[in-house]
Design a protein around this nucleic acid. Structure first.
Lengths: 199, 199, 199, 199
DNA sequence: AATGAATGAGGCTTCATTCAT
DNA sequence: CATGAATGAAGCCTCATTCAT
């Protein structure tokens, strides 16, 4: 009669991780329209188990976004303390790109329907990036007319760009990050026409 | 004996345009999984009319791609004769961005299933861009390590980036095109890590 | 202002025949689910013209049935005057089979929804066949326990049977008509279990 | 560790049988173009359940054919060992007719698209019938010029013929089987014009 | 708690029929 | 009158979600 909740919880937690991993892999291969059934199969569990852990397919997506955004924010926070602000910003963008490696999951960042929790996380990430950019700007490592919001928006571009290549080398995104990052530098910067968007 | 199909064609042609416009808008808002029913509704026609004009949803997509790619290629060809190679390349990218203005239809460029005609068009555009880039490179207007393929890939980025902004000003993409284009210039260019992809 | 109804009628009549022929061919190739559009195309007219002549696809089918049944009845009537009753009945069944040659259109005879006119025609054919069978029976050319209704029912069997052969020779149905007709003869007849159906 | 899938299977198996029965009835009444929705309704299950059991409408058809052909072949195999070859062949055809009792499902034998498994089954049945006919021929119970293929083709005729009668007595097909079987006997046989088809 | 069977809304496509030209 | 464009109901199939076991 003693609740065996220990092992059960362990199993459940394991299944949760299996599902997140399977979902991410499946989404990466097939896009968001990957079927829940395939995800379940890949995770080696029944379809019903998916819904036990994530009430909705959207919830599952949100959980993945949460992970991504959370991880990224943590990296950003850590890099706020780095010695070289320019290197810190580039490293941050490198972490962002590496996180997706090969896959454009930028649409995950869309989800206005993603629920308040995700929105909050996103805003936190936004503030972190602003701080990183501010530091870099003060160190004259990025042009004066570029904002944190600009960088947030451009953050996904390298992976997105690569998504049009058939069988890209796994780090091709670095090439486009380098180009874009050069565009953010103060050297040889041309004035920017429309002002940066708010928020 | 004169073909009595002028007025009928007028109506049909109008519907065809309505459908293409509706499809483009719907795809831009919802992605390629926008439903044919919604497209038909938006165009103000019955579902069956879509089929009459485009035997398949894929055909509809192909038609849109055809239009985009064709128009863009024409612009590129024209700009090959321009006096200033640097301005020509920038103008080309500006045409590309303006064509979509606010709309990230970059996924249209995916469609490997788009049929041989679309593939051919795409390759033609690719060659045109290569020529534009070659000219610009020779004029020292873009960095030496950037290829036509790079530019083709980056072409969609400004619009894509803007698609994450809630209610963006219609020309916000120009801001990001400016940044990216600055990244393509030779001034202050840092070396690029992975080589450019083939094809 | 003189009504040019003469030539128009001629045209219309021609179209009607074209349509009947096209429909029969199409039905023969594809079955009753052949599309009206295909029939129109085969007849070389517009889809609308089909409906001008036959308010409904079912009407078109009924018209074909009418033709078949009418022709067959006429043949039967003619054969009622033939010298040899046995040969007359066999000839009648041969006409029936040849009329369909290669194609099982027996389902056309189903159509309870075929409208009163078709029903009337069918009954007339039925009476004709009964007379043919009566004469043959009196001449001891068919077994005593076989009725006109039996023969009407068996009439379509040879073509139906052949419809299961992949690429049958055009007169294969004659083989099965011969077998069935032998079954109708008095020689070596075994008693029949359930009585013949009414009507 | 015992597979906990007994009761679930029970439900599922029941539904499978319900579906097969409903499909057979619906096909018999409306032909193969009976709608999956109607079949599901008749079976008292949802539309999706049909798909779960039979991935495709064609699979459903194939399953029915499989059942029919398999059962019939088993009967034929058994009758190969019967003492009286003539009685054995008649009994076989009686089983065939009784299996359908009132239902013309002969179109089921068409399905060239039915998949290789069904084709194989059909060929097996064909060989069984050939053996039955060979034995009967050797015993002088059927005419010398009749082949197994002939019998296979004629097998469905009695039920088909009956399908044109409004409310037929359930065993009316026996009447037409008797007539056709008399046509297969050597007594009073007239020569057959076109040779029997191959395969 | 896990499973997978069942459900039904919704997607794409076809086609008989109507109607403006 | 003929034409073919438009329509919308209906068909097959997919899949997120619920629920009995």
């Amino acid at each position: 009669m003693t609740p065996p909740s220990r092992t059960l919880r362990a199993d459940a937690a394991r299944n949760r991780e299996l599902l997140l991993a399977a979902a991410e892999a499946e989404f990466a291969e097939r896009g968001l329209e990957a079927s829940v059934a395939d995800i379940a199969r890949r995770a080696g569990v029944g379809k019903g188990t998916v819904f036990r852990h994530f009430a909705t397919k959207d919830d599952l997506i949100a959980a993945i976004v949460r992970t991504h955004v959370g991880t990224l924010d943590a990296a950003g926070q850590r890099l706020l303390a780095a010695a070289d602000p320019a290197a810190a910003l580039l490293e941050f963008l490198t972490v962002a790109g590496g996180q997706r490696e090969q896959r454009d999951v930028s649409y995950l960042l869309n989800a206005d329907d993603a629920g308040p929790e995700v929105v909050a996380l996103r805003e936190r990430l936004y503030r972190t990036v602003c701080l990183l950019v501010d530091r870099a700007r003060e160190a004259n490592a990025v042009r004066a007319d570029v904002t944190g919001h600009d960088v947030v928006l451009l953050m996904c571009a390298p992976n997105h760009v690569v998504s049009f290549v058939k069988d890209p080398p796994p780090d091709l995104w670095r090439r486009y990050l380098a180009i874009i990052f050069d565009g953010l530098r103060p050297e040889g910067a041309h004035p920017l026409a429309p002002p940066a968007p708010e928020l």
